[in-house]
Design a protein around this nucleic acid. Structure first.
Length: 421
DNA sequence: TCTGGGGTCCTAGGACCC
DNA sequence: TCTGGGGTCCTAGGACCC
């Protein structure tokens, strides 16, 4: 019996039909209950859906760089994040389409409604992909493979987009499966044949292995996931670092205990603008940064979130980058304090900018928390009053009393300056 | 190849506190 | 008085992902 099962679309594994035995869920497939659903060439597919004259043709969404390419354009070698000029050289007949973010957001919402209608355990990864845990749904909705089949049909019928679904026992493998199963496919990995499926794949298939790490691994003769699996954990750690080494070792041996989790909140929010190579005045850059601060703080308030750390990002003419950050004593979504922090950073960086030329500026607010969490902390936020009380106690009873008081307070759950998100 | 815009996580050094 | 070890926070940079 084959290690993978696939239908719809092209596949190197053939177009096996799904047998009743496999559907029944009483066989070796039983443990494979995580779905990774990934829309195909998302932006480009939305454009082809909304404009029939683009269907069947190479379509490139984006301006300076390729944001998305239709499968017809990918056939010429066009890839996401490629420079626009090269893309046009590779695919002169391609049709350029400017991005319509609202249309993509709307399509994404419609697809996520179907996800949420399928199972309560949905973990969104980005606008166009999510993990779904359907393990507990056998009695009411059928086996994971049956659920995946229905999900694909519904997305096609109700939103008009193709979606590829990977089905496996772990998140990592489900994601790899959807990647291999593209486009417009369903690919399930049988739990007792996982290594057969995983080990022949190139090292880039491992989550977290990009250009730099792949080159590091290839330099020492590691080209497939199987090659990496043959290495000891110590050797891997010495090669790519502690965290990455442990992670790679686990994934190569198909150890992935992460569960599908709902309700995750983003921990930073930001915005940036590329500004081209022409020289810019201080006034222009200042205005650009003010606009960005305004956008970001507006979005934070709309999302009911506040943040403590402002990170200003610079990219210079030679494409080197720098970031400068400032952490405030209190989390906020107000424009004024964030504006001040950002402009102060810009002023401090100005001599470097004059020297090197600026091609991009951005702002990101990190250490986000909920706005209501801060309100709960407000009674304790008067630092000068607190300082005075601390000084008084220290004078009267000595330093150790302060430590005991702080520890007592912590144990009792007050005197906490900020509640976590 | 001359380059978007949105994110996440990890590392490493220094300051500071106990 | 001198010294050490552990923990947390902040900052800057880098790799990676979609």
């Amino acid at each position: 019996m084959q290690a993978v099962l696939k239908h719809g679309g092209l596949s190197t594994h053939g177009q096996a039909d799904i047998s009743e035995e496999q559907r029944s869920g009483t066989d070796q497939w039983a443990a494979a209950s995580i779905l990774h659903a990934d829309l195909d060439a998302f932006y480009a597919s939305v454009e082809q859906r909304d404009n029939p004259s683009l269907r069947g043709k190479p379509v490139i969404v984006g301006g300076g760089v390729v944001l998305a390419a239709s499968y017809e354009a990918k056939a010429c070698g066009v890839k996401t994040a490629m420079g626009g000029k090269i893309a046009r050289q590779l695919c002169p007949e391609a049709i350029d389409v400017p991005p319509r973010m609202e249309a993509y957001t709307e399509a994404s919402k419609a697809v996520f409604e179907i996800f949420n209608d399928t199972t309560p355990l949905v973990e969104g990864i980005s606008v166009d992909e999510a993990f779904l845990d359907v393990g507990g749904l056998r009695r009411i909705a059928g086996t994971p493979i049956q659920i995946a089949e229905r999900l694909r049909k519904r997305v096609k019928a109700e939103v008009g987009l193709n979606i590829t679904v990977g089905v496996a026992r772990t998140k990592f493998l489900a994601k790899v499966a959807s990647g291999v199963g593209k486009p417009d496919g369903l690919l399930a990995v049988r739990p007792d044949r996982e290594m057969e499926f995983l080990h022949p794949l190139p090292v880039q298939a491992l989550w977290g292995v990009g250009k730099v790490t792949a080159e590091k691994l290839q330099r020492v003769g590691l080209f497939t996931v199987g090659d990496v699996a043959d290495l000891s954990e110590e050797r891997l750690v010495s090669l790519v670092g502690t965290a990455a080494g442990h992670k790679l070792h686990s994934l190569a041996h198909n150890v992935d205990r992460r569960r599908v989790t709902t309700g995750k909140r983003r921990s930073s929010m930001g915005s940036q603008r590329a500004m081209g190579r022409r020289p810019k005045t201080h006034a222009e850059i200042d205005a650009e940064l003010r606009g960005i601060v305004d956008r970001v703080t507006r979005r934070m308030r709309a999302a009911d979130r506040v943040g403590r750390t402002a990170v200003v990002r610079f990219r210079f003419d030679d494409f080197t980058r720098a970031t400068r950050s400032h952490t405030m004593t209190e989390a906020t979504a107000d424009t004024a304090p964030i504006m001040k922090a950002s402009l102060d950073i810009l002023d401090a960086m100005w001599p470097t900018i004059e020297e090197q030329g600026l091609t991009l500026i951005g702002l990101s607010i990190a250490n986000l928390s909920n706005a209501d969490a801060v309100q709960m902390a407000l009674p304790f936020a008067d630092l000068s009053a607190l300082d005075h009380a601390v000084d008084t106690v220290r004078d009267k009873f000595g330093t150790n009393s302060i430590n005991r008081a702080v520890n007592l307070g912590r144990d009792q759950g007050f005197a906490v300056p900020m509640l976590p998100d």
